[in-house]
Structures are given as structure tokens and as C-alpha cells.
């Protein structure tokens, strides 16, 4: 089987940047509300979270997308993810029980998906993969697992 590679793209960066921005706006808004309720000093916290959100939304997504990559050679899925805390995953194809992919409306709009590889001892997530690559990987994993099924036993007449 040819080596199948996958990695995040520009769309993944956009989704991640929007997620960070939404979370940042929410936290900044909450800090602003608390400042209104208790003390104006909390506006400093709101300003700080706002600044952090802008920084994180600009700095993190390109690095995350650059770090997320992997491959499937017919026997195992290998993937690397994480910017500061790096994680290298090695999952044998035959250990996989189910392969699942899901997408939120935002992910659908940006044509990317999250893949969940489930095995007996737990599951690993490959978030924000491009739609076509997710489909190719799912099909390849399905093909491998269907090859492993035992041959059907013909029914004998009694």
C-alpha cells in the first residue's frame, strides 16, 4: 500500500483562529462583566485577556497547523501534533475498533474534520484535518480492516 500522508492546511488554521478568538471574546466579556459588578480594576484583567487572545489567535494556529502531520503505511497510523507539548502517536491499524470523523458547522464551512481513532484501551483525536485527507484516511483504514475480517464460512446443509 502506498504511503498516505496527511497534514493540516490553511482552513484548519482559520478554524483554530476562530475558536481561539471566540473563547477569548467570551473570557474578555466575562472579565468585563465582573469589572462592572465588583471593581473597575478587573478591567485590567479584561484588557490582558483581550491582548492574550489577539496574540494567541495570530501566533498559535500557523504553528499548530505546521506541527500536525502524519502518515498511514497500511500497518499503522503515525501522527505528530502539538506546538509546545508535542505528542507522537503510533496506532497499529489492527488495534483500531472504530474510525470516526465528525465536524462542527464551522469545520464544515472550512472543509475540515476531526478524526477519532478508537481502540480497546481508549481513543486518540486527530483534530482539524482537511476533509479530503480525512476521507482518504478513513477509506484506507476501512480497507485494511475489511481485509482482516475472517472469511465467511459457507452454511452446510443438514
Amino acid at each position: 500500500m502506498p504511503l498516505l500522508t496527511f497534514s493540516a492546511d490553511k482552513n484548519s488554521e482559520t478554524v483554530l483562529a476562530l475558536w481561539i478568538a471566540a473563547a477569548g471574546v467570551l473570557i474578555t466579556g466575562l472579565a468585563g462583566c465582573l469589572a462592572g459588578l465588583f471593581t473597575p480594576w478587573l478591567l485590567l484583567l479584561a484588557a490582558l485577556t483581550g491582548a492574550l487572545t489577539v496574540f494567541a489567535a495570530l501566533w498559535y494556529p500557523p504553528r499548530y497547523a505546521a506541527a500536525l502531520h502524519g502518515s498511514f503505511d497500511g500497518t499503522a497510523v503515525r501522527a505528530v501534533k502539538g506546538v509546545l507539548w508535542k505528542r507522537e502517536l503510533y496506532v497499529p491499524a489492527s488495534a483500531l475498533r472504530t474510525v470516526e470523523s465528525g465536524s462542527t458547522p464551522l469545520q464544515r464551512r472550512c472543509h475540515c474534520r476531526t478524526m477519532v481513532l478508537r481502540f480497546a484501551g481508549g481513543a486518540v483525536l486527530l483534530p482539524l484535518l482537511p476533509e479530503e485527507e480525512t476521507e482518504r484516511l478513513s477509506k484506507a483504514l476501512e480497507a485494511v480492516s475489511s481485509d482482516e475480517l475472517p472469511p465467511e464460512i459457507p452454511e452446510t446443509e443438514q
Binding site: L84, W85, K86, R87, E88, L89, Y90, V91, P92, A95, F119, A120, G121, G122, V124
Partner: peptide
């Protein structure tokens, strides 16, 4: 039955060339 092997590397470990290896396999206590 070794279902998944994960190599973790935090910034400190990346600097000194080390890592944490995690093995996941089936178990009643997970």
C-alpha cells in the same frame, strides 16, 4: 495487544532530548 504508543515531549524535554513514553492497552481499570 499494545493498542497505542504515545511519545510526549514538553518544552523542557525537547530542549534536553528526552521524552515520556505512554502505552495504552486494554485493561479493566483503564
Amino acid at each position: 495487544v499494545a493498542d497505542c504508543l504515545i511519545i510526549h515531549r514538553n518544552p523542557w524535554e525537547q530542549r534536553n532530548g528526552t521524552c515520556t513514553v505512554e502505552l495504552r492497552c486494554f485493561g479493566e481499570k483503564r
